[in-house]
Design a binder for these strands. Structure first.
Length: 155
DNA sequence: GCCAACGTTGGC
DNA sequence: GCCAACGTTGGC
């Protein structure tokens, strides 16, 4: 099993939206960065990810999701009315892929970016690297454990 | 292949 | 709203 962190702007899709979704499950459309795409494609069923709110007050990890469906072509790339439309993508060789994620747990309180910066052992975490903007990023098992030990989660 | 111009992300 | 740090595009 591998661990990840996925970012979303809550004004676009929030953790509450996920909890309100059918089966508490959502596809992860709209990623249009190759490095992030490659991470999405390497996810396996059962992998877990921190659900992070960016451009939010506060910016924070809110909860945990699990991969319930491996990456498949993101339909929005072929939809001219979608803001994620990609004119250059070919249905015979799709560019963009998305897995499905399902709600797993929620932190008793969000783990804020400010807090994360102060937690020993997270100094090398991708999220905290200066200039980092990857919206899908790997998390080491050590980093995962440190954050879970920092704050309680509940179903 | 280089790199300037441009667009985007995302913290503050 | 600002702007640093990236990623992408496209002329050459």
């Amino acid at each position: 099993m591998h661990y990840w962190l996925i970012k979303t702007e809550p004004s676009t899709f929030s953790f509450i939206d996920l909890k309100n979704a059918k089966n508490r499950t959502t596809c992860w459309e709209g990623v249009r960065n190759y490095q992030a795409r490659n991470f999405l494609r390497s996810m396996n069923i059962g992998d877990r990810a921190f659900f992070y709110h960016s451009v939010a007050q506060p910016t924070a990890i809110i909860g945990i999701v699990e991969v319930v469906k491996m990456a498949y072509p993101d339909h929005t790339q072929f939809d001219p009315s979608s803001k994620y439309y990609d004119q250059k993508s070919n249905p015979d060789a799709p560019r963009w892929f998305m897995p499905d994620f399902r709600y797993l747990a929620e932190f008793s309180l969000p783990v804020t970016l400010e807090e994360l910066k102060k937690i020993p052992g997270l100094e090398k975490m991708e999220l905290l690297r200066k200039g980092s903007r990857l919206s899908v990023q790997p998390v080491t098992s050590a980093e995962w454990e440190i954050i879970l030990n920092f704050r309680q989660v509940s179903d």
